[in-house]
Write a protein that binds this DNA or RNA. Structure first.
Lengths: 191, 191
DNA sequence: ATAAAAGGAATGAACGTTCATTCCTAATCA
DNA sequence: TGATTAGGAATGAACGTTCATTCCTTTTAT
């Protein structure tokens, strides 16, 4: 097993176990076992569990942007742009349930809240695409003139909820239902 | 301190600590200390930590229904009924941030998922009021003909998200913003 | 005086992390 | 080329800590 191979195995095992069992249901010893690696080996690649958790998160976030930006046309009408981004995101979550569950675990943990607070205060990059879209829509009087946080809530709230419901098996989302759901989100934010 | 008084103190301390620090940030010893009670005393009232957590949850849920049903008029138009329930719920969460944070902790934990699954499979009582409302709306062709789970997601998704944002200090919700947000949710589900 | 309730030190299991040791590879020497 | 050895990656048993829970003593109430 080559060198980066081992790191990858650790990351993969951590993703699987944490996504399925939460941070506290995934002890380092168990992660090591599932990665076919000694317990101490993890510490050759990650300073401690917190660092492993954070790096894993950043890796997932980095994967996400290219996916939703693929074929994104910033010149199309606002509604079309919104539907593109929303459905792309929802599809990604459905096709990558482990990623989704991990992101949720992270966001609902102290790590995530702190991370989000930093982003808020620092006005960091990240959801730029959505923010631009909303600001565009407000100034064109196409989207309701609400604070951005509210628009985010109206868009991502349902999106994350249906993704969760699908992954937990409470509903079976097909292409049609995905589109309808994102269209309904648009109805919520449009004037 | 009388007998039920002690039980109440334990429940209050557990609510505060778990809402603020999560299940794993609220050890039994700390709960006992904050309740001014010996560590062993908790076990006179609750078989173990899981039972404490579950009973606390059921207590909160039981408080919730009377609140949102107050002044609820099942004969008013659908939109009005929806706005009443939605704003009442959102207001309750904002006025009782500890309750809200506890409920979120619970729902995002293995306890909550299992609990929800039981409810789903058993078609248990609970969100009856909302379900009736949605089914009414669908048959009157006022609400989109979506699966109930999707309608729940479109309504509660944003509601919980804005409540979270308010409590974490990312937005300051006043009466106007509360109404506008719930109206926007209605725009999302109405035909 | 007796029983019930409360208290908190003691217990053992589980966890993250460390570190002395092993193992593997590849450079060095004969 | 084949044998020897150095270096660092990998290991997993062991450690210290934390936690839920138990158990025995003390306090309170009757």
């Amino acid at each position: 097993m080559s060198k980066p191979d081992k790191r990858d195995e650790i990351v993969r095992a951590a993703l699987e176990l944490i996504a399925e069992n939460g941070f506290h249901g995934a002890p380092m010893a168990m992660i090591a076992e599932h990665a076919n690696v000694g317990a101490g080996t993890i510490y050759r690649y990650f300073e401690n569990k917190d660092v492993l958790i954070a790096e894993l998160y950043q890796g997932l976030e980095a994967r996400l942007y290219p996916v939703i930006l693929e074929k994104y046309a910033p010149d199309k009408p606002l509604r079309e742009r919104f539907l593109h981004l929303g459905t792309a995101l929802l599809r990604y979550f459905i096709e990558n349930p482990l990623d989704f569950r991990y992101l949720e675990q992270f966001h609902n943990s102290p790590y995530g809240v702190e991370y989000r607070r930093d982003k808020m205060l620092g006005e960091k990059e990240g959801c730029d695409i959505f923010r631009d879209l909303f600001e565009d829509g407000i100034s064109q009087q196409v989207i309701k003139d609400f604070p951005l946080v509210i628009l985010f809530a109206l868009s991502f709230g349902p999106l994350l909820a249906v993704a969760r419901d699908h992954i937990l098996g409470f509903v079976e989302l097909d292409e049609a239902l995905i589109t309808w759901t994102i269209e309904a989100c648009w109805d919520g934010i449009r004037r």
